[in-house]
Design a protein around this nucleic acid. Structure first.
Length: 368
DNA sequence: CAGCCGTGGTT
DNA sequence: TAACCAAGGCT
């Protein structure tokens, strides 16, 4: 038998048909970003859903659409407003790229998202997979996605060895994804792969009994669903410490604009005590001399109080935050890049999740 | 190209 | 509870 592709078995169109049939009867059909071909809404959902689960996105999606109903509204909004509406969702580069992308769509495409996946992928924040998802859902364009769900489903069904994040393995998965595309029904097929991965073919305890692909699944046949996909090789995550100042005056708190790149990029946050001073401060549990100088520059200090340290865990390191509450009797000049925010407005500010929680807890100690 | 980039849920 | 990781993209 002549070999037509490197994946002969994939030429069987019953694979995509099984996914499509299952999606239409058992898939998700009522998510807020479904049942529309509005590319703006589809795009917004796809960006929010990058590395983020549906449950975490729902509230943000609704509030975002209410504040920015169209791509023009988003493009003309100040970036600070966009960041504030993204606060707590994480991966803040997505928010900055989202804003930049909206501006480009308005300026270069008259407010209409291009239908060509290649043109979409040229826009900030949109990669190959997200571009395919957007055009599949908003235009019915036949293009392949390869997100975490698809990687997991493919790794199990086809018994793919090797870590899917590895270049060579991922390239093979992309070729499979392209080869498997159905001639018709790209929307149901694309959504079906996502739904399978999210509801049945989950990381742990997959529900193989309900899976439409069970009969052709290598992992099921060999009882290796626990081993596929191959886990990411683990590395020890470093720990970092940061001393932060909660400078209070007249029921306002002093916040500092963070650089656009790096952790919490583009957000407001508590001013950090510089470098080694912060570490000393953390270890001593008191205000070191240099820190005292930094604080004095802010105004006439009435009281300094060390608050309970908190630990925040990121994907790639663990951060020990040592907050110190500084009460000013009198306020000096506001340093460059800083802003005073009313305590009652903290909930709506563009803050990292742990910082927002700290400040809200501080404002309402009655909860404890 | 491997590391960076958040947060919250699950095991 | 510490580890793992989810609708990825960028550098």
């Amino acid at each position: 038998m002549k070999r037509l592709t490197e994946f002969d078995d994939l030429l069987d169109p019953t694979f995509s048909q099984a996914v499509i049939d299952w999606q239409r009867t058992h898939g998700r059909h009522t998510l807020p970003w479904q049942n529309t071909r509005d590319a703006y809404r589809v795009w917004l959902s796809e960006i929010m859903l990058q590395q983020t689960q549906v449950a975490a996105v729902l509230g943000y999606y609704a509030r975002f659409l209410e504040r920015f109903p169209t791509v023009q509204d988003l493009a003309s909004a100040p970036i600070e407003d966009v960041m504030a509406h993204w606060s707590g969702l994480g991966y803040y580069t997505r928010a900055r790229n989202l804003h930049a992308c909206a501006i480009r769509v308005v300026n270069e495409y008259g407010g209409q998202f291009p239908a060509d996946p290649a043109l979409l992928a040229d826009l900030p924040g949109i990669g190959r997979s997200t571009a395919a998802a957007i055009t599949a859902f908003s235009n019915g364009t036949r293009a392949a996605i390869l997100d975490g769900n698809v990687k997991r489903v493919f790794a199990r069904v086809f018994g793919v060895e090797g870590y899917p994040g590895e270049k060579r393995i991922e390239e093979g998965l992309w070729r499979r994804a392209e080869a498997l595309l159905p001639a018709e029904g790209i929307e149901s097929y694309t959504q079906g792969l996502m739904d399978l991965g999210a509801t049945l073919c989950t990381r742990s305890k997959p529900d193989c009994g309900r899976c439409p692909l069970q009969a052709r699944c290598v992992a099921f046949a060999t009882n290796r669903t626990d081993e596929l996909p191959v886990r990411k090789p683990k590395k020890t995550t470093p720990e970092k410490r940061a001393a932060m100042l909660v400078v209070i005056h007249d029921d306002h708190v002093l916040l500092e604009q963070r650089p656009a790149s790096g952790i919490w990029g583009g957000l407001l946050s508590l001013p950090e005590v510089d470098g080694h001073v912060g570490i000393e401060l953390a270890q001593d549990g008191g205000i070191a001399l240099a820190a005292q100088v930094q604080v004095q520059a802010l105004g006439q200090v009435e009281e300094v109080q060390a608050l309970l340290p908190l630990v925040h865990v990121f994907t790639h390191y663990k951060l020990h935050i040592h907050p110190h509450k500084v009460t000013l009797a009198e306020r000096g000049a506001t340093p460059d890049g800083h802003v005073w925010v009313a305590m009652e407005a903290v909930g709506d500010a563009a803050l990292p999740a742990p910082v927002k929680k700290l400040l809200l807890d501080l404002a309402r100690p009655s909860l404890f």
